[in-house]
Design a protein around this nucleic acid. Sequence first.
DNA 1: AAGTCGGGGAC
DNA 2: GTCCCAGACTT
Length: 355
Amino acid sequence: MTFSKKLLIWYKKYGRKNLPWQLNRNAYTVWVSEIMLQQTQVKTVIPYYEKFMQSFADVNALANAHEDDVLHHWSGLGYYARARNLHKAAQQVRDEHCGLFPLNFDDVLALPGVGRSTAGAVLAQAEGQRHAILDGNVKRVLSRFHAVHGWTGQKKIQDQLWLFAEMHTPEKQLADYTQAIMDLGATLCRRSRPDCESCPLSDDCAALATQQVALLPTPKPKKTLPVKTVRMLLLRNDKKQILLEKRPPTGIWGGLWSLPEMPVIESVKDWCNTHYQFDINASDELPVVRHTFSHFHLDITPCVVEVNNPDQSVMEAERRVWYKACKNDRGSKAESQSLGLAAPVSSLLNRLNEE
DNA sequence: AAGTCGGGGAC
DNA sequence: GTCCCAGACTT
């Protein structure tokens, strides 16, 4: 059985058929509901839709209203450009289509605030015209059904999903099919805890077959993290011990032991002299190590420094310790169980120890 | 391709 | 707190 046929059978039993905009359905009511439902959940929209329709019963009433009045009805819904566009579009219908909501795809698409998916949804639901839709629900259903990996905002992925959407769109029962695929996405093929047991498409779902339902759709990539840089000093005494410092209790690596840090821009020799009263001859930079936190990258420039007069540093004894990195029984991992080390510090000490 | 608009729900 | 939601528009 085809995708659409299974979906339509399921819809007949379990689909939503009494939403406010499904009663007395016409292009205007469907259009208003579709705009309100952009990036907004059904439950939130319902009271707004009912009040809006009471005040603006048809497209001409909306066109002739004051923008402030339209915006007042939108207050609290968010994305207020939707309301301004809705009002402008109603005037466009009044002025360019003789007050009759257009039933031609390109004309609907030309209305401000109406994109490809919304235009398709309006004409499919109100007029039974054959158009595919691709909203958040459909993207989720199709990316799982076809195991499409990649963020759905990417053009390549979006094009692929539109092809699948077109492919599955039936020739008849467009209103029901359009509602059905959205209902499936909203009620069973949810973002979290999808109910695959109850899904009419589970037999052919590629994501389910390969245990990838939870991985799809691929989440939006996180925005580029800011990069901070720091130099970490591997201060080494004549016993080949490294100076560690205890971090403050709050903040990054709170309470853990770490290496002394200093700005990359400043002189190592001056810094050691000023902050530690250490006399050093030379220092040796190691390759930069990137450590990533949830909110930034930390590029660490490790710098090995041989200290000539380590005895000078007896200040703040509780916060500083000369530490001898050694290998434990398991091999390469440093013996650090007794001392809480920040992860990249542990890694650096290992590297130094292996040389 | 990335940024913007937004209040609210799920977790 | 984060992520996302029946997207479209601008830069």
